[in-house]
Amino acid sequence: MSGWFSALVARELRLALRVGGGALIGVLFFLAVVTVVPFGMGPDLNLLSRVGPAILWIGALLSTLLGLDRLFQADRDDGSLDLVLMAGRPMELIVLAKCLAHWVATGVPLVLAAPVLAVFLNLEPVAIGAVTLTLLVGTPALTLIGAIGAALTVSLRRGGLLLAVLVVPLAIPVLIFGVSAADAAVSEPMPFLTPFLILCALSLISAVVGPVAAAAALRFSAD
């Protein structure tokens, strides 16, 4: 099994690196979101450092969702999805492989960009570390949950917006525990580990629910 799985991951990574710089655009969008927030809220550094983790998480959520609409649609447009469905490989693992590659190509750059953007928001070093760590653990969940939306909207011409609408409610728990853990790292009485472990659990749950649901949706979408 490992042969085809790694072949698929390698192909997806190659495509992500060669086509249109998808990872770069995601990071740029992340930067744009973080930049507009002070314009909306005012440049009060104390306020910004207090809501900084939330801003970073919302930015990561939005750029993950916006980058997901082509996850399966590109394959559907050129006929690859037919071959994928007929390949005789478990569709759930195929979805998992594609999510893994997509996360490496677009999620990891977001995580790497987060500490830099956190400086703009006047976060303390501990908070920067906490936000980056929670993003590292939590963004896979966003990709996996988003894959469900991507699979559901695969046959729609302009499915990107609908994808976001469908997925945002499902992503709320990830956001809550990601921000809670990051906040807890700096504010004294609250424990960091509890929300962080729940966040890990959410990522693991999405690693099951996401591929299973997305695979079902893709099977039904073929025609």
Binding site: W4, A7, R11, R18, G79, D82, L83, M86, G88
Partner: peptide, 22 residues
């Protein structure tokens, strides 16, 4: 539909399908 990925080389396209298709 040709199911050919334009960004990959001809050999990459074919080798992927060899490994991927059971």
């Amino acid at each position: 539909d040709s199911a050919v990925k334009r960004a990959l080389t001809v050999l990459e396209n074919l080798e992927f399908l060899r490994e991927f298709t059971a």
